[in-house]
Design a protein around this nucleic acid. Structure first.
Lengths: 120, 120
DNA sequence: CGAATATATTCCAATATTGGAATATGTCAA
DNA sequence: TTGACATATTCCAATATTGGAATATATTCG
């Protein structure tokens, strides 16, 4: 069928490069009005507002009013989910040789357990 | 205009839940034929092949022939990019209070530097 | 109130994505 | 060679996404 909503989860939200840039800028500045982001990243205002809406929907940013401005702030807690997920595979890029062996042994154990199902 | 290709980078590749599942299974098993993935995840074979193609395009998996099977293996090195990126924001979820203060101070310094540009 | 500023929203076109069905390709086995 | 098996590819429909232009919605100021 179709494809799944970008607002579904954090992984989809940070898949868009411009949104990652917004996150980076917000992390540096701490809190910014929309216009500040527009000027910093040289994006169109509607585009920025839309990206912020997506990030807010997922909980990566929060906003508050200040005069006629709307100030956005990074709420990195949501990014922890990504960190935790990807960290599970840390062994795959660190300690190259050791991890390869460890992985192979682990796999061997797993396969011994359910040898009849997989690998047909 | 349109949207950008999902095969562009790792972030887009792991944005799709089914692909994350494939990564998880490959990490556990070490190496799997397509059929093993099909049975484990209960997905249709063409769907699995397509997802594997995307993952391979980005470099997250590699494949090798073994008889009439094609064995896929996780190449987690590519995931390091995601890890590195998201780790930059670790302060936003760990040591809650300390990091908030540190961030505020950092922002204050930044803003003092270019106070006339931003925040209008 | 009326004008200006800041931001959000709507509408639109171009394009990408996903899953499913059918089919193609490749490889082993008898 | 023929058939069975494993996987990839193509074609299709439904849907989502992105950016841009125009417009709507506050909110402040004079």
């Amino acid at each position: 069928m179709g494809r799944l909503a970008t607002t579904a989860d954090v992984f989809a939200a940070i898949a868009e490069p411009k949104r990652r840039e917004i996150i980076e800028v917000l992390a540096r500045q701490g809190a910014m009005a929309v216009n500040a982001i527009v000027h910093t990243l040289k994006l169109a205002q509607p585009a920025v507002s839309k990206h912020l809406a997506v990030l807010k929907e997922v909980g990566v940013v929060s906003s508050s009013k200040r005069g006629r401005q709307r100030v956005y702030r990074l709420r990195g807690e949501e990014l922890k989910a990504v960190h935790d997920w990807v960290k599970m595979y840390e062994q795959f890029w660190s300690h190259q040789l050791n991890s390869i062996r460890a992985r192979a042994e682990h796999a061997a154990r797993e396969q011994a357990a359910n040898s009849k199902k997989d690998e047909s």
